[in-house]
Amino acid sequence: MNPVNYLYLAALLFTIGAVGVLIRRNAIVVFMCVELMLNACNLAFVTFSRMHGNLDGQIVAFFTMVVAAAEVVVGLAIIVSVFRSRHSASVDDAGLMKL
């Protein structure tokens, strides 16, 4: 098997995550889908690292994880405070800016 299959898998997972973001209304699930996309990218980075024979790809994946952690912390805090004030975690309900 050619290791390039890992890349195809990463692409597939990324697309699934993106479609999930588009079709789910629950903000928490949307967040999970974003995480899935980030993980797919990480897989691609790791595979590229193997391909080029250096560790820079893994470093980038590492940083991605850190950023994802920060993003999850803030994002979940936002979801909690929105739920507290609006009693709903649906992204469709947050439409105050619309005319």
Binding site: N39, Q58, L76
Partner: peptide, 29 residues
Amino acid sequence: NGAYFLGIVQIVVYTGAIMMLFLFVVMLV
């Protein structure tokens, strides 16, 4: 793929910490 450190961090941080955070919020909601 030879990324031993990342593999362990993935389990400990992602699956262990971040997913627990998710579940915690799911419980709250």
